[in-house]
Amino acid sequence: MSVKQISVFLENKPGTLMGMTEVLSRNNVDMRALSLAETTDFGIARFIVSNVLETMTILKDAGYVSSLTPVLMVEIDDKPGALNRVLGMINEAKINVEYMYASLGSRSGKAFMIFRVQDYKAAQASLRGAGIQVLSQDDLQDL
């Protein structure tokens, strides 16, 4: 089980990001993590929510182009060296990280890292084998 990330196409110009957050806000969508990637003329907003299908429908109705991608959402300690340890394991499994971003956990002392890798199942197995908590979509409800 992985977490499904929503990616949305946005033009890189004033107000477009807000246009999207306005739609999400109006529909009471709670984002667990968010990152932006951009070129000079367009960008991609990537984020994690618990109610994925509902959010996709909301975005589609509002005219956005979006896609779903399985990503790894890993809970780590909010302290020096924690990220390094996880990356070490992913590296050992010879898995390439395409991109990643962070989000603070709601439990004190914890943080979340979101990894986009080609073979998320292999990465997940290797991390879980080492006792690291990899979240599933259902876990998001309880955060």
């Binding site: 990330q5 990616s7 196409f9 990637a37 951009e38 070129t39 991609i44 990537r46 182009v65 979006s66 896609s67 991608t69 395409e98 986009r116």
Partner: peptide, 9 residues
């Protein structure tokens, strides 16, 4: 378009 879009920049 939806068909052309991916999360990969």
């Amino acid at each position: 378009t939806q068909e052309m879009f991916t999360d990969n920049l």
